[in-house]
Amino acid sequence: MNENQSKLNIGLSRMLCGGVIMDVTNKDQARIAEDAGACSVMALEKIPSDIRRDGGVARMSDPQMILDIKEAVSIPVMAKVRIGHFAEAQILQELGIDFIDESEVLTPADEVHHINKWEFKSPFVCGATNLGEALRRISEGASMIRTKGEAGTGNIIEGVKHLRTIIFELKMLTRLNQSELYAEAKRLQASVDLIKDVAKSGKLPVPNFAAGGVATPADAAMLMQLGAESVFVGSGIFNSSNPSKFAKAIVTATTYFNDADKLMDVSRNLGMPMPSLSMDTLSEKDKLQRVQVTVSLGLDDCQWMRCPKKINCNIVDGSRL
């Protein structure tokens, strides 16, 4: 991905703003999503709640299944690869996917490295739970960031936490002076140059979408009001009692997120949302948001840190990396 390709890829992200990206597992679902007004669909064999239920290794979907879905709709199609699995990404790029999601919902393939997304022409979206994580993914070439939330739970609490964290940390950056920015770059383990740019604009250089646990139109509206630029809905649509109705309601709620009257209207008589999980029933190891690189990394290993000392920061909290 050269500079021009990066412009094209971030450009596509910008064109997906103010919309809903829906998980679909077959052609029929893809058509329902498109008819309801989805601006893109995510093709995958199992939606997150089923991945959670079934356990085992979750991998990239069968390319034929993704091609069938591409064939069925006119909107952009995304698909997921395992974190770090660049060969899966090569396959998706080859089949002409519009966006690759390097996703914590699948089982990671590499415990140290994310995919070097600059090596690809296709755009990537990556999950983040905080600003440092978002900026590291952007340094690696991500063209879109989404919050991780806790996929497959129908519980919005983690998505809200991650979105609020990123937005709070963005605001903080704009208040810091130059020397504080260097320290903050160290704390966030992110590129100083990127940190300086973000401190100036107060925004990520790529769109910031919300994902993970969206189950109702009100969930979507809440995330949009908090500052998300679009919403991903995974299990929330096709595990609800009336997918088409839920899909349309969430699309309307995403455009008219500030209009309580419309929100009330689309929320009435919707039927049952997806089956949900509360966070205290999930053990730490079952949380998908924790699925990522978790080994400790010396600061001097990080090309962006420019740290003169060889500090070995023993980071055990996976979310920091």
Partner: peptide, 11 residues
């Protein structure tokens, strides 16, 4: 603006 025309039509 740009975006998805089918989405705008449906909304």
């Amino acid at each position: 603006p740009g975006g998805e025309s089918s989405t705008m039509l449906r909304i």
